[in-house]
């Protein structure tokens, strides 16, 4: 029999299945009044340390939980548990980013009465940007030692985030990092970004960041009411 060739128009979003799972996670979280925050940065930018500081500040008044994404080990989850917060580790075994289906697998373990759910993504400024996890807010972190030329090099992370945090601000006096320039460059890529500077050493910026999170939680709850 003769083979017949033909063209089939498909026009389907390749990440459609991830987006579908993410949307259903977002809907469930928002219905429960949980504000979920997905944190993106290179390894070592200070994601876990920032979560420790924010967690300590918020935990007396709010229920806070943390999902830790790592290629291997449960180390970051253990750090979070040490400050008295529940943490769930997702080990990706090699994958360089979290995907919505990985969250869906552990979703039943997340208590329904949380206020804040932080999701520390795998340390990587490129790949995690492509995957919606169903978060309400995405944070991109850049630490002072990484250099001030990064926003344009990693535009996807900046375009898809709502908040940009410059971490390790205590190192500004010692390094050629122009925080104003990097802020301007990030805002050029995404004019809607909220920008914060934090230091886990001096505590700078932790309070304003927590107030911002509280405001966002209020907005979510008002929307639900």
């Amino acid at each position: 029999m003769e083979k017949r060739k033909k063209e089939v128009l498909v026009l389907e979003d390749i990440l459609g299945s991830n987006k579908k799972i993410a949307s259903s996670i977002r809907k469930k979280l928002e219905e429960k009044g949980i504000l979920a925050i997905n944190l993106l940065s290179s390894p070592g930018s200070g994601k876990t340390t920032l979560l420790e500081k924010i967690g300590l500040r918020l935990k007396d008044r709010y229920k806070v939980g943390v999902i830790e994404g790592d290629i291997e080990t449960e180390r970051d989850a253990e750090r979070i548990r040490k400050i008295g917060l529940p943490a769930w580790q997702i080990i990706t075994h090699g994958a360089c980013h979290l995907e919505a289906k990985m969250l869906a697998q552990i979703f039943d373990r997340i208590p329904a009465d949380l206020d804040f759910l932080f999701i520390e993504n795998v340390g990587n400024l490129v790949c995690p940007a492509s995957f919606d996890l169903g978060e309400s807010l995405r944070f991109v972190l850049l630490s002072v030692p990484e250099g001030d030329d990064k926003p344009r090099k990693y535009p996807e992370a900046f375009i898809t985030s709502q908040v940009f945090v410059i971490t390790k601000a205590d190192l500004l006096p010692y390094l050629p990092f122009d925080a104003d320039r990097v802020t301007a460059e990030a805002l050029e890529i995404n004019p809607k970004l909220e920008v914060f500077r934090t230091s886990a050493i001096t505590g700078e910026g932790i309070e304003p960041l927590c107030q911002y999170l509280e405001k966002k939680l209020q907005e979510l709850r008002t929307k639900n009411a």
């Binding site: 017949r4 128009l9 498909v10 026009l11 389907e12």
Partner: peptide, 13 residues
């Protein structure tokens, strides 16, 4: 500019 799309396939039937 953020799209990732399977536009079309050529197939044999």
């Amino acid at each position: 500019g953020r799209d990732l799309c399977l536009e079309k396939l050529e197939i044999e039937t």
